[in-house]
C-alpha cells in the first residue's frame, strides 16, 4: 500500500505505519510527534486525497 501511494505521488513523509499497543502511551506520543514533524517539514503544501470541491447532492 505504501509503495503504491508513493508511486502515485504521495510523499513518503506523509505515510507512516506503526504497531502501537494500548499500553504503549509513550510510543504513541513519539510516533504522533514524528508524523506531524515530518509532514510539517515537507516543502509541498498541496493537499492530497482531500476533496476541495463542495459536495453536490
Amino acid at each position: 500500500m505504501k509503495n503504491l501511494l508513493e508511486h502515485m505521488g504521495v510523499e513518503p513523509e506523509r505515510l507512516h505505519f506503526s504497531w502501537i499497543s494500548s499500553a504503549e502511551s509513550t510510543k504513541f506520543v513519539d510516533v504522533a510527534t514524528k508524523v506531524t514533524e515530518s509532514v510539517k517539514s515537507l516543502e509541498s503544501k498541496e493537499k492530497k486525497f482531500v476533496k476541495t470541491k463542495p459536495k453536490v447532492a
Binding site: 508513493e6 508511486h7 502515485m8 505521488g9 504521495v10 513518503p12 509541498s44 498541496e46 492530497k48
Partner: peptide, 11 residues
C-alpha cells in the same frame, strides 16, 4: 524516478 510532485501530476 520522478519526484513526488511529478508523480502526482502524472497520475
Amino acid at each position: 524516478a520522478m519526484s513526488p510532485d511529478d508523480k502526482w501530476a502524472h497520475f
